[in-house]
Nucleic acid binder design. Sequence first.
DNA 1: GAGAAAATGTAGAGCGCTCTATACATGCGG
DNA 2: CCGCATGTATAGAGCGCTCTACATTTTCTC
Lengths: 325, 325
Amino acid sequence: MDDVAAHAGVSRALVSLVMRDSPRVSDHSRKKVLASANELGYRPNAWARNLASGQTNTIGVMLNDLHNPYFTELAEGVAATAAENGMEVLITSGWQRESGEHAAIDTLLNLRTDGIVIGAARFSGEVFDEVAQQLPAVAVANFDRPDSMDTVCNDEAHGAELVVEHLTSLGHDRIAHIDAGNAPGAPERRRGFMSAMSDRGLAPIVFEGDFNEHAGRDAAEQLMRLKQPPTAIFAANDLSATGVLAHLRSIGARVPEDVAVVGYDDTLLAGLGALSLTTVHQPRQLFGQRATELLIERIKGRTAAKHELIQPRLVVRSSTGPAPT
Amino acid sequence: MDDVAAHAGVSRALVSLVMRDSPRVSDHSRKKVLASANELGYRPNAWARNLASGQTNTIGVMLNDLHNPYFTELAEGVAATAAENGMEVLITSGWQRESGEHAAIDTLLNLRTDGIVIGAARFSGEVFDEVAQQLPAVAVANFDRPDSMDTVCNDEAHGAELVVEHLTSLGHDRIAHIDAGNAPGAPERRRGFMSAMSDRGLAPIVFEGDFNEHAGRDAAEQLMRLKQPPTAIFAANDLSATGVLAHLRSIGARVPEDVAVVGYDDTLLAGLGALSLTTVHQPRQLFGQRATELLIERIKGRTAAKHELIQPRLVVRSSTGPAPT
DNA sequence: GAGAAAATGTAGAGCGCTCTATACATGCGG
DNA sequence: CCGCATGTATAGAGCGCTCTACATTTTCTC
């Protein structure tokens, strides 16, 4: 910066103003400085800048798992909203391990970004409290609902209810749900399913499963061996639904004529022509957007925690149809 | 840091040594300092640390598209190797837009990370040169092969040859390739296909397509309308192959009895039981690992550029079988 | 037990910026 | 021509660390 100042024949402070786009600089000087900076290949040092200014103009995003489109779309929403507000985004990932998550959060805390968005972390409420104490933070899709920070959640239970509503309106009454144990979001989906079923006077059939294809296939196999197999299967997510489809196909059952199948998440899979899965869409980018907006409110000074619940929407494709008579 | 030093009754320099895990500190002092730091909730400021030390111990990763598993697995490889070497990783993304890529690279350059891994960027060779001039950098899966920086590439042509080899060994001789124009990697796959075919005295049938499902479906439709439809279709990637499968299914053609189908990339899709696609596997994590290793060599002082070509491998599943007689 | 070597601790000068306070022009009304 | 507001530029004190050089203490060797 000193070199640029010398080259342009001005003070270092002026160069600083130009680099920060201050309006307090005359056009003449601005051009001169910019030309010198360009000629010398000068680029401000972010570390020094943030150290001196005490703020980073950056939002940190910690994602549990970069392979999961849920998180990457979330990050995309954050990036878009951050860009609108002139902020930058830095991403770290825990790579599905809890120790990795701790390291990723530590990196962000040491960086003292202006705020942190946490994507479905595995760690306990205490860690959330600790993070919230140090920096403004928002947790997305975390159902422990730490009170210490803002949260943005999907209304999983409502999504499950939409599925039941759709299937019953098609005449189905033997509807089975393959769940995913205590994986994030799964308990809420299960509860939503069970209460929606009992509300309609139907017996909820629930089978244990997981968020993967294999679990879907196994559960489907057991379900179809029942004396009275279900006419509709609501899988834990799209991936598990593809397992269901694979099994049904292998035993020659037609979808949706013999059995209707519903997934959850509306991932790329569900949209494929070869699968064409009815599923529940979550506005994942919107999660990122709202999270960032909440974060910016916090950065600007809000102190009371806010908790937001976002409504999912049913996407009907060709894996569901009228119940067999 | 001053507070911690005062609280522990030592100098600031000693606290610094402890925070950096220096061996030059007695056990006694170390414990005392750590206890004070913990009690006061002290956490070193990364900006100040990196500014003072002139190094960041961090590798920056710029990914064109976080939604593409190719890039996230690449990043995972980088993260694992970086962790082994005690370095941290910060990710930025261009969100599929060229302007986004520039911003993402700028963020990293301003951060002056110790090195940068660039995941399949869209921008021109000049930009690479500029980046390489400022920081040690490695480009992955970029086929313009900037000479100014190290590169790690997949041997796309060889992958295509593996496919042709596999299909001809099954007796196929009317093999069609659906390409993806000039999208990254596509020209090499096309060339590999064409030369492998002519090497075997077979006429290469190439149809224009893209890296998506729709293109696969369209091309398959045209191919199956030919007077002599191909007995095997080699799609541009897995996604485009699912389009082919969807079309074949819709016209009642059996896979693999009537038509064999091959994808490329070995994504999650290919492994699904409902699709079970023969495809070409790329060791994406290995790309990240090699890239990081090259980067660390550079950081340690190597100056000559290295270019590495990584060999793919065929994964045979049930979408291919003997040619119809 | 003296002297050297090793182990441990400290002072203080930066790292490359930002930001407050202040200086210096210029234009204006009276 | 003075005083005042407005528009620009600058000086210089940090920001929170690291790192070199040096001071002090302990341990070792003969």
